[in-house]
Amino acid sequence: MKYKKIRRSLLKTMLGGLVLAFAVTPVYAEKLSKVRIGVATAGGGEPITWGGSPGAVARINGWVEEAFKDDGVEVEWVFFKGAGPAVNEALSNKQIDFAYHGDLPSVVGRSNGLKTRVLLISGARNNLYLVTPVGSDIKSINDLKGKRVSIFRGTNGHLVANNLLAAHGLKERDIKGINLDSGSAQAALASKSVDAAFGGQELFKLRNQGLIDIVHSTQGKEPVFTRQAHLHVRDEFANAHPEAVQKVVDTFVRAADWASDEKNREALFRLWARSGTPYESYVAEFENQDLAVRNSPLIDDFIVGRYKEVVSDALELKLIRRDVSVDDWFDTRFLQKALETQGLTHRWTRFDVTGKPQQQAKVATVASGG
């Protein structure tokens, strides 16, 4: 009798434990039905896409959808006119799982407690341009003091613009900064509502229409004045669905390989032009630059160094309130597996913290007797 009571007591305890285990099982442990990828730009075209990034190749060709087809998993792409800051909000609210994002807004998100992992680079060394309406008396960055200048605050171009101002002895407070997104900045330039604007390759369209002049370009200059973009994922999603993360990374690496092939240069630019930014704009943006350097997915010393500098600069400019760690932010396991699986381990050159090829840096050190 006593034995039966003990057995019943043990059985109740075991059943209670099972009920509790199921009760606390996270939602993401359920079968995955949808993968949501956010993109920090309004995009354009039909279907909506963007340009300048290998990720856009995967988007336009439907490679992510193809990877999940047999699993019956839906792939949803979400584009944000509010760019980086809007993507941070969506990540915080768990409205997206992955994000194509710029360096500064991601650092801001991390400083505010967003838990993500940077998986790979998808658009390295993006240039920044200072442009003015045609006929302006502004001929260089030195002429910007007191002028109405469009800067899309919170984006990866914001910090580079500040660094360019600093290199010319100016601070953002020395100009009349106006926060405009890319489309609004173009309209303001065309109507001469601003004196100048910082922006990217989208501005070549206005130049080719004879509406603006480019008075400063970071193209071909020190890589510290370039912007980086990446693909990252929410920690919660990665912990629950590592196999899905691997599939997304696999397709982005496949796209990076295709976008790095010089034989595909014209096809690549025409593919990106489906976003609404003209083919000629990409020709100008990538002039005299190797596709394999700009479209490499690698997280090398240069990339890690740039993100550390972004943190440092953002702190100095009070764009973030506290320091954030960088080294433990990058999770290269999925990237490494994709490179090995696709036979791409030696596909791209790795760069040192200054932006020079690592092998070249080693040779220089040996030659100097170091």
Rank of each mutant, 00 (worst) to 15 (best):
V245M: 02
F68C: 04
M1N: 12
V304D: 00
S281A: 15
L15E: 01
F80S: 12
E340Q: 09
L20E: 00
L315D: 00
K308F: 07
A259R: 04
D331A: 14
G52R: 04
S53F: 09
N156V: 15
A83N: 12
A292I: 06
S111P: 06
Y100H: 15
A240W: 06
L114C: 07
N288A: 13
K81H: 14
Y282V: 05
L298D: 03
E66Y: 07
A99M: 11
R321M: 10
S106E: 14
Y129G: 05
T332S: 09
D323L: 01
A90P: 06
E46L: 11
R265I: 01
Y129F: 15
D331T: 10
R110G: 10
L180E: 00
W77L: 11
E65I: 09
K176M: 07
I121W: 02
A197W: 01
P297L: 05
V245L: 03
I178D: 02
F351T: 09
D331G: 04
L15G: 00
A229V: 08
D97Q: 08
G44A: 08
G169N: 04
F286S: 06
L339F: 08
A67Q: 01
F204K: 05
R148W: 05
A99E: 03
Q359I: 10
G43P: 02
N112G: 15
V78P: 03
R265F: 04
A338K: 02
A56D: 05
V78M: 14
T277P: 02
I37F: 14
I48R: 15
A42M: 13
R7N: 08
T251V: 10
N112S: 14
S193F: 07
V107A: 12
K12P: 11
A67N: 00
E222Q: 09
G169D: 00
G43T: 09
T365S: 13
K115D: 10
G169F: 00
A364S: 14
L211H: 06
S53G: 11
H168F: 08
L18R: 04
T349N: 14
T332W: 01
A23S: 13
A292M: 03
V224T: 09
F204T: 05
R265V: 03
R125F: 11
L91N: 05
L317E: 02
K4R: 12
